[in-house]
């Protein structure tokens, strides 16, 4: 049978893949994808723990919120990436280092 542990393992795997993508990819779009993966890992955890609140379905409700917020953030992030590209003519995060001293 599929237990909570399985869900958590899958969530952890998703988070790790997302984290790797955020830290290692050379493309801002793929970094954004990594972020989406990490958000979905969190959402999966919310849904998985939601079975312990069968009265209010708080986990599911929060998952829905998170999905909506993720969609909004993707829209904003894509807009930022588009502007970054216009400004720098690249979306490689390695090359955008104007934050350094």
């Amino acid at each position: 049978m599929i237990t909570l542990t399985h869900f958590l393992i899958v969530g952890a795997c998703l988070f790790s893949i997302g984290l790797y993508a955020v830290m290692a990819r050379r493309n801002a779009i793929m970094v954004l994808v990594g972020i989406e993966l990490m958000i979905n890992a969190a959402v999966l955890n919310l849904v998985a723990f939601g079975r312990y609140d069968s009265e209010h379905y708080g986990g599911q409700a929060f998952a829905l919120f998170a999905i909506v917020l993720a969609a909004a953030s993707v829209a904003v992030a894509l807009a930022i990436i588009l502007n970054v590209y216009r400004h720098y003519k690249t979306i490689n995060p390695e090359d955008i280092n104007h934050l350094k001293d």
């Binding site: 984290l19 955020v22 830290m23 290692a24 970094v31 995060p93 390695e94 955008i96 280092n97 104007h98 934050l99 350094k100 001293d101």
Partner: peptide
Amino acid sequence: LRHTQAGRLQGYLSSLF
């Protein structure tokens, strides 16, 4: 310490992690 301020977003994230 100024070498840590490389301005690379992913570096910051890595150290945060």
